[in-house]
Design a protein around this nucleic acid. Sequence first.
DNA 1: ATGAAAGCGCTAACAC
DNA 2: GTGTTAGCGCTTTCAT
Lengths: 330, 330
Amino acid sequence: MATIRDVAKLAGVSVATVSRVLNKNGYVNKDTEQKVAKAIEQLNYEPNAVARGLAGKQTGTIALILPDIANPFFPGIARGVEDVAQKHGFTVILCNSDDQGHKEKSYIEMLRKKYVDGIIFASNTLGQDDVEQMNKNNIPLVVLDRAPTSQSCSVIRSRNYKGAKLAVQHLLDIGCKKIAHLYGPQELITAKKRMLGYEESVLHFPWYTPSLMVPGHFKMDGGLAAVKELFAKHPDVDGIFCGNDLMAVGALKGLHQLGVRVPDDVALIGFDGISLTEITQPELSTIAQPNYDMGSLAAKVLIETIESGVKEAKLYELDVELIVRDSTKR
Amino acid sequence: MATIRDVAKLAGVSVATVSRVLNKNGYVNKDTEQKVAKAIEQLNYEPNAVARGLAGKQTGTIALILPDIANPFFPGIARGVEDVAQKHGFTVILCNSDDQGHKEKSYIEMLRKKYVDGIIFASNTLGQDDVEQMNKNNIPLVVLDRAPTSQSCSVIRSRNYKGAKLAVQHLLDIGCKKIAHLYGPQELITAKKRMLGYEESVLHFPWYTPSLMVPGHFKMDGGLAAVKELFAKHPDVDGIFCGNDLMAVGALKGLHQLGVRVPDDVALIGFDGISLTEITQPELSTIAQPNYDMGSLAAKVLIETIESGVKEAKLYELDVELIVRDSTKR
DNA sequence: ATGAAAGCGCTAACAC
DNA sequence: GTGTTAGCGCTTTCAT
């Protein structure tokens, strides 16, 4: 492979000049620029990204840390991130943290050593100390689905509270008389907000009681188990708002096993808008999050931060959308 | 951040010695090793990966190029790749090619500039010329689901032909009297082999006719459309082997719309073993590929090649498994 | 067993 | 406008 020196020699100029035309900075005569361009062309020269990285401390690489790419919630985000990264000439490193703090820390360590230009966190175990650490190391980060902190980092999330209210209102609208909620891990802000939205929507109804809220851990199995637990206590429930789609799918399975018909006996709605919801029978109503958009926005914000060098700590809230399908059609 | 020079100074040795203990190569006295270790500890020194990459031409990075991480077939593979990469201290760059040759080429270009140590291709548009190009550039690669070529690169795939025969045999075993096949794009070797397996299993039956094979493009919509086309011609079909699960899900939808009961009227089996198949009602029988394992094996083979420097071009065929669920239970 | 020094390929002061 | 040169932080001969 040709180096910048080869180009300089062939063009009869110095490496500095070549570097200038490469990076389009500094003054350079039109004519010499032409000569350099020709030399580059002739030698089929490609700048070496690693050398660039070492010299300039910028590698054109960002990392995406998420719990598990195999969880259907994340591929859409990943795709969004990668698309805009790619468009801006950045490359994306994928990291699966399994929501384990130590894995996350070791990734961060490794990424720092590799001079990644920035990190997107879609993981839930990122500690306050980690954020500080990154800030100290001056590496920009954007986090997904977390509360804004005092630290300087931008947050992207969707309107979970509003979405929950939308979901419950929809169930009320179609005539539900007793609505339950399957909720996720309360250390996740998303799960919390959704539960809050539910609670505040139903608190004033005479039928409301806290035992209408059952934990389902954001998982399919959890949803299945939860629905059984729920019906043992409240066989008269006629509407369920699930904190995420995975639990809704599990709930659907559970209801099926119990011989409860959806939507006739019980109307069911989830949250997230993953593609699984279009596959069940009946198809599931859901509150769709702009999954892909969250990823692409995160990348956009991060890359802007990287390229401008200005660290701002904004909060971006994306809108959610009620998608009505057969599971709530009466 | 401390550099190797700082460590050398503090330990009272030369940078060469520090480098030796870092890389555990060359001779170094036990005592000096201790001193160096202590200095490293004290300074909290971490070697700079970029500088290492520039000096040594090895970056500890591999790339995974696949059509689309949002396609449910790939996250499992990606997870498998990342897990073993991580275990070996490698980092994974994710690339979505959308099966477009030009995107793939531009990724390769970029990856080469970044000194990635190797590439895993799960993409279908990789040309023979690209492989040669990589070989010339001496960058190891492992490909998934492709025919072995004359070029030196290893291939990982699962037994598609055998899986197809397994599927058809299963349909025969449960008493199907007329079996159809929805097939995928014939430029994909996986689609081809599966069709071949079907054909050779049913060719000798009097009921067999080529119009029992209908294209479904490996997509959900395609499966849905295909099943309608199929039933227009062959309303007496009582078993369908779908070339992949996505089409099977679509087919299930289509059959539902046609008022055909599964499995009572028509038994349905897919191929791939993606998680969607556990979500439908009824759950879908399928031929499961060891998705995760294909990814982890690919990474293992690639990293071995990288670390040993020995390029072998082996073919690894992984076994598939018949998973019987309600869609073929009679 | 250890050190000096020449790169790896590029960027960016600084000088002209 | 262009060239010289000193890094970036590490690896790796080649001496000793």
